[in-house]
Simulated scan of single mutants.
Amino acid sequence: MTGAAVRNNEAEQRYELPVDGDVAIAAYELASDRVVFTHTVVPERLEGQGIGSRLIAAALSDVRKRGLRVVPQCPFVAAYIERHPEERDLLG
């Protein structure tokens, strides 16, 4: 599996993780000082490889660096935060 780093595509309001010609995305909306994650999409052929978790970990790290808060409307992001209590301080 080859892939680039996760990037924040601000124009499209989504974090992107290119892997082997496909792109996993975590879409969001900015609302004041909050990043509202609306949905996550991992291409079917990449499912089960930890791509989604890698994407969300990097996205949350970026949100933290920017001093913003997270609203996890997306069930995948909510489940990730539930499994990683060290990220819960971002909720708000």
Rank of each mutant, 00 (worst) to 15 (best):
D33Q: 14
V6P: 08
A31V: 12
Q49F: 04
V36Y: 04
R54Y: 05
R69Q: 12
A57D: 05
Y15F: 15
R7G: 09
G92W: 09
G92R: 08
R7T: 15
Y15P: 02
R66Q: 15
G52A: 11
R69T: 11
G67P: 08
G52Q: 00
E16N: 10
V41C: 07
I51K: 02
E87Y: 02
A31K: 13
H84C: 03
I25E: 01
E44G: 12
P85L: 00
A58K: 00
R34V: 07
L68S: 08
A24S: 13
A11K: 15
R88W: 03
A79C: 06
I25A: 03
E82R: 02
E12N: 13
L17N: 01
Q49I: 03
S61I: 03
L17D: 00
V71T: 09
G92V: 11
L30S: 11
G67E: 10
E82K: 01
L91T: 04
G52H: 00
E10Q: 14
P72T: 05
P43M: 13
K65M: 10
L46E: 12
V70S: 00
L91D: 04
T38V: 14
A4P: 06
R83V: 04
A59P: 03
Y15L: 08
E12W: 08
R45I: 06
G48S: 10
V41N: 07
R54M: 08
H39W: 06
Y28L: 10
D20C: 13
D22A: 15
T2G: 12
S32P: 01
C74R: 09
S61N: 11
E29K: 13
A78E: 02
M1S: 15
F37K: 00
R88Y: 05
R34P: 03
R69D: 03
T2R: 14
I25R: 01
